[in-house]
Design a protein around this nucleic acid. Structure first.
Length: 236
DNA sequence: CATGATCGGTTCTCACGACA
DNA sequence: TGTCGTGAGAACCGATCATG
């Protein structure tokens, strides 16, 4: 672990205020040459309309512009970050289908940037972006700083998603009994209650009882929802 | 006493096939 | 194409028993 990482890891994890936490992240980003940084997270629930949270230190005018134009729906870095963990450097080619967004960003001083997606066992998908108005990011610089940027992404994701989850019902810990977990696993495999009863050598009613118990714990409307939620929470 | 496991009866929902 | 009947599966309510 580099001195950079070692010096900041413990101090970051002890911070319990989201604003202060992100402020520290921006300081770290600036220390490695990026004046701007942004972090966005998409919560796994509700599946029909996943909640998105964003924090950044971009110019206020650019934040307003981005929001007004709903650029998030066409931002190629967001699309990339939601499906890939591969680092991405901003380029003309990247924004070929979002020229207006690209030109607006540059006009607000966001000229060179680097983004990386990340995800965790809770099903939260995050994306970290660092950017600057100055010189382009060279291959040499990227090679030198990539480990630090990857670390910064992970630390930001762990810390900030924790704050986001604190204020949602999804963030509340759910504990399933071993029997409940076992039955949900078979349910996820498409087995009916009767089939699971045969497999586990218990009555179908008993299987249903445990399924109902998981519905209550997961606040799920039905068995299908319970299985999906349990899977996304990493309980299976 | 709290928790987990087991079981029974009943009702509801929904997919599917038959039929006009 | 729309309606209706049927059956499988799901959901709900209740209870007892074992264990730490």
């Amino acid at each position: 672990m580099s001195p950079f990482v070692e010096e900041n890891l413990h101090s970051l994890l002890s911070i319990h205020d989201p604003r202060l936490y992100f402020s520290k992240i921006t300081q770290l980003a600036q220390a490695i040459g990026f004046e701007y940084c942004a972090y966005g997270a998409r919560m796994p629930f509700p599946l029909s309309a996943p909640r998105t949270e964003m924090v950044n230190n971009y110019p206020a005018a650019w934040q307003q512009c981005y929001s007004e134009h709903q650029y998030i729906t066409q931002d190629p870095t967001v699309a990339h970050g939601s499906r890939s963990m591969v680092p991405l450097v901003w380029s003309d080619e990247l924004f070929a289908d979002a020229r207006e967004l690209w030109e607006d960003a540059r006009s607000y001083g966001l000229r060179n940037g680097w983004a990386q997606g990340c995800r965790d066992g809770n099903g939260v998908v995050g994306m970290m972006t660092v950017a600057r108005s100055g010189e382009p990011i060279t291959a040499v610089e990227l090679g030198e700083k990539e480990p630090l940027l990857a670390y910064l992404t992970q630390v930001t994701h762990v810390g900030m998603s924790r704050f986001f989850l604190e204020h949602s019902s999804y963030g509340q810990e759910v504990k399933l009994t071993p029997r409940e977990t076992e039955i949900l696993r078979w349910t996820a495999e498409g087995k009916t209650s009767a089939e699971i009863g045969d497999i586990l050598n218990i009555a179908e009613r008993t299987v249903n009882f445990h399924v109902n118990s998981t519905l209550a714990k997961l606040n799920a409307a039905n068995k299908t929802s319970a299985v999906v939620q349990a899977a996304l929470r990493g309980l299976l």
